[in-house]
Write a protein that binds this DNA or RNA. Structure first.
Ligand SMILES: [Mn+2]
Ligand SMILES: [Mn+2]
Ligand SMILES: [Zn+2]
Ligand SMILES: [Zn+2]
Lengths: 154, 154
DNA sequence: CCGTAATCGCAACACTGTTGCATTTAAGCT
DNA sequence: AGCTTAAATGCAACAGTGTTGCGATTACGG
């Protein structure tokens, strides 16, 4: 919820400005990650106009507060859907439709830390994204394959 | 080894050109990941001169052949140190000295796939980087802390 | 050594991200 | 509601990163 993020801003002493609200709302609606310029375009389509510098600064702030994450595979940003949930926040990114879903897996986190520790590395955080097909796109692809190669038994 | 990479190029029908050799050699020496422009700078210091477009194209090719990987945390490239070893190639990146180390953990890979599958996602590959301190930098930091706060018992 | 497809260099451009400074605005206080 | 002021935004200018088209060069097989 946008409202939750606004409370975090207030709690930390940051102003709740119109540009910040607008960026939050755009990210809230999006299924896929959005680049700063994507955000600018989408807002412009709604008659709202933000300077790209402003968008960069807002995204920096939101990231530092963990209200937003940057997806490295796509270079875009998403609104965090897990609030402050314990453990590192991971992402699945559909390479077909771009849909991005966030999740936490405590066990995975632990095992990952152990692995790197065994190699003499002192991990501060990990950073994990999976690329593949979301269930919707997977089904679509199956259908296509059936059409292309119809009924082997006729 | 650079030689191994050259054999892969030949085996796939790609020419072994001077620029390609030079990029391979630079990456071979490096401890940290290098951006295309880093590579250009380093080569220039050796009196070699490559156009940045050429470097981009060479890196694209190498990545497509898995001779080189892009590190997303730093935006740079490293030479693969594991040849075609089974499983996804992961990275530990020291945020102090930039040293980058590659490793494989089959178990981790499996668990990660299982996790995403349980969420209805069909993973094609994952992408995993850990940020932290390499053992050398970790030791250095411990020493510093001791100096800053000497002998609690005096 | 030659012919040729592959590769490279160059120029021009598009996209992404940053900095400094003047102007505006949110929010706390009368 | 108006006043004050630190925080935030807009603007301009710039730096860094990545891409495209095309003509010139080069690796390599014959
Ligand atoms: Mn999150
Ligand atoms: Mn590798
Ligand atoms: Zn999808
Ligand atoms: Zn280090």
């Amino acid at each position: 919820m946008v409202q939750d993020s606004i409370r975090v801003l207030q709690a930390q002493g940051y102003k709740v400005t119109k540009p910040r609200r607008q960026v939050l709302e755009i990210l809230e609606e999006a299924e896929e990650s959005l680049s700063p310029y994507d955000i600018q375009r989408l807002l412009r389509q709604q008659g709202k106009h933000l300077n790209h510098v402003t968008i960069y600064r807002i995204l920096d702030l939101f990231c530092s507060l963990n209200l937003v994450h940057r997806i490295l595979l796509s270079g875009g940003f998403v609104k965090c859907t897990l609030s402050n949930k314990e453990g590192c926040h991971r992402f699945m990114v559909c390479y077909h439709c771009g849909a991005t879903q966030e999740f936490v897996d405590q066990q995975l986190c632990l095992q990952e830390s152990k692995s790197t520790q065994n190699l003499g590395f002192h991990t501060q955080y990990h950073f994990s994204e999976s690329s593949g097909l979301c269930s919707a796109c997977y089904k679509k692809q199956l259908q296509k394959q059936e059409e292309a190669q119809p009924q082997s038994n006729r």
